[in-house]
Every structure is written in C-alpha cells, then in structure tokens.
C-alpha cells in the first residue's frame, strides 16, 4: 500500500496538513509540526509594523521545516481582498498554491459561497492552484470542481470549535458525488478520532491547527493525529464492513454445544 499521493501534481507522503498558528512558542510550533510528519504547512500574511521583528523570526522557523507552503487568505470578506492577498502570497512564498478563504459570516467564520466561487474563478484564470475552504454544500463543491479546483476542503465544523464532523452525511455525499476531487476536511477537528472519522469516510486528508496548537502537549498531540489520520486511511482502503440493523454472531453456530440441541 503506497503512502504517496498527489495534490496538483505534487507528491506528498503525509495526508496531514497542519497550521502554524496559536502555538505557545515558535519552538513548540516547530516541534509539533515535525512530530506531525506533515508535508504541508499553512501560513498567512498580515500588516507588520516596523517596530516588530516577529515576522522575520516566524519566517525563519518556517523555512527550517522545509515543508510545502500553503498560504491562506484568512480574514478576507470579499473576492477582491482574497485575490490581492493571494497575489502577494505568490510573490512572497514563491508558490501558486492558495488556501482560499472568503468569509461570509463573522460569528461562524462561515465561508461565503458566492464570494468563494467568484474569487476561485479569478484566481484559477490567473494560474493559481486553489484549495478552497468551503461549507459542506454539495452543489457548491460541484461548482468549485467545475471551475477547475482539483482540491476542495469542506469544513467539519466552524473554525476553532473542535466540534468534529457536524454533518458526516453531507461529507459522505460530497465524497460519493465527487470521486475525482482531492477532498480534505478543514476546520472544526477537535480530537484524533474526528480526523480518523474523516479519513474513514474516504477523505484524502485533513487540515487542522487549533486541536494541536492548544493541546497541553502539542507535539505529542500532533503525533496522535498523525496516527489517527493514517489509521483512518488504511481502514478506508481496506474496506470497512457495512453496518447492519440486527446482530449476526461472529462465532460459528454450527457445532454449538448441547444447550442449542433439541
């Protein structure tokens, strides 16, 4: 069973995409990302005041990790903002990958499906390889595929909630209806079992941040997630038995002892 898979033509070993935010320190971030075994790290751009040197230090820690970079457009509320951030990210990070976020509701940090489609279309025309952060709406995901997204990342639940997969049925339906798209559950994962569940549904990967960064021991939690993601994938590839409504004995009934004999 090969561990290699591809995303927009790039070969990856791990199915774990990890965020670089919210860690207690940059050193702990580095340890956790290394322990995760992730090949892909998400990061962002923000205004930087001249007085603060944090941006340069952060970048040095990221460079040391040697991972593929997936810059995001977090915090953007319009296609225009997201497009500008994507173009700046491409120049700075020298990658045409972009995790596209266009937020429609600040309370839920819920993606704006209309803005997402508009921005995705413009960015794909501009040569970007778009990783859209979407809701679990099947039709939205179909439209994103139609535009040329080879990867789609529906939410499990709202960002940072740790509620796991709110709607496994919707996620399964997307998997079933879009067999050729690389699907990652992005956001809302709280426990390794949530990540394992996503992989058992046939998702190609998981993107998460808070559940590792806010663990008491982030590096060990990263390892736990790595194992869960791998277990879920192996289970999916091995063929999970269908659930039944009634019991079926696992021990053979033929040759059962005397109390079953008339």
């Amino acid at each position: 069973m090969s561990n290699i898979w591809t995303v927009y033509g790039t070969e990856l070993k791990s199915r774990f995409f990890i965020g670089s935010a919210l860690y207690p320190s940059p050193e702990i971030m580095q340890r956790a990302i290394r322990a995760s075994g992730a090949d892909v790290i998400t990061l962002s751009l923000r205004r930087q005041s001249p007085a603060k040197k944090g941006g340069e230090q952060f970048w040095n820690y990221i460079k040391d990790l040697g991972c593929h970079l997936l810059p995001n457009t977090a915090g953007c509320h319009s296609p225009q903002e997201a497009i500008a951030i994507a173009q700046m990210s491409r120049e700075i990070f020298q990658t045409d990958w972009i995790k596209l976020e266009v937020i429609g509701d600040d309370y839920n940090l819920q993606p704006d499906p209309f803005g997402l489609l508009e921005a995705a279309e413009a960015l794909i025309k501009d040569g970007f390889k778009v990783f859209p952060y979407s809701t679990d709406d099947l039709v939205l995901c179909q439209r994103l595929q139609d535009l040329g997204c080879e990867v789609i990342m529906p939410w499990g639940s709202p960002i940072g909630t740790g509620k796991g997969l709110m709607n496994p049925f919707a996620l399964s339906m997307i998997r079933e209806r879009l067999p050729d798209v690389k699907l990652l559950v992005d956001a809302g994962i709280g426990k390794p079992s949530d990540a394992c569940q996503a992989m058992e549904l046939g998702y190609d990967g998981v993107l998460l941040n808070t559940a590792v960064a806010e663990a008491v021991d982030p590096a060990t939690m990263a390892e736990a997630f790595s194992n869960a993601i791998r277990a879920g994938r192996i289970a999916y590839e091995s063929g999970i038995m269908p659930a039944r409504e009634s019991a079926k004995p696992s021990t053979p009934t033929v040759g059962a002892p005397f109390w079953h004999q008339n």
């Binding site: 965020g19 919210l22 860690y23 205004r47 930087q48 941006g55 952060f58 977090a74």
Partner: peptide, 10 residues
C-alpha cells in the same frame, strides 16, 4: 497602502 509580512496561519 497595505504592506504585509508572513505570519502564522491555520
């Protein structure tokens, strides 16, 4: 004018 630098992100 917005002048941006890399920061952590999820």
């Amino acid at each position: 004018l917005d002048v941006l630098r890399p920061v952590s992100g999820g």
